[in-house]
Amino acid sequence: MEISIVAEKIGHIGPLPITNSILLSWVVSVLLIILAVLATDKIKAIPEGIQNFFETIIEFLFNTANSVIEDEEKTRKYFPLVATIFIFVIANNWIGLVPGVGTIGLHTIKNGHATLIPLFRSGNADLNTTLALAVITMIAVQVFGVAAIGIVKYGKKFINFSSPINFFVGILELIGEFARIISFSFRLFGNVFAGEVLLVVVAFLVPLVAPLPFFFLELFVGFIQALVFTMLALVFIKGATAEIH
């Protein structure tokens, strides 16, 4: 049994290496877009089936976002980002639990051992994905902050010569923004990767029945991590767009 912290390469498209995690995140993205088109293709005032399902999710997310932002107009502006984060993260987390993900692959010889290179790997069990989400979120937070209160006011948060204390607070804030990228990406990666490892280990030890509670646990963790990422993004947006006193 070998568990790799790095997503395995399975091919190339030009200069771009294709890893099993980016492949699965593409599959997830395409599935999500197909579902979205199906949900709203024949949109009706009285919802039915898949439209109803997505309406419930969107409404839940919108109310959650609005409970943090507390301004419906603003929430509408930031909603696409936070909703996509939530949906992308939870879809990737849950699809990683589908049997076959992580087990179907190519047997190859690597460093003298017979190893399995899985075809799919949960997108969030790869730091590239979580780091990409974190970078997008933190850049978006800065953009929203500047757009909401102006570049001068927003810049004062980081570069402030009004007093030595404020100057150092500004530097700390600046470091904090980068720390947030790291905490964002490692939190999600750590949780999902740990879940994968846990499931592999439990399934290796007791293949039947025993992994079941852990599957439920991972379903729950997948939801919670998506929610945590979304809520933190919302809180950072709220903080960045608020006037500084």
Partner: peptide
Amino acid sequence: LYKFLYNPILKIL
């Protein structure tokens, strides 16, 4: 997703 999901659904909501 904005084009196919959020926009139409938020509108209808």
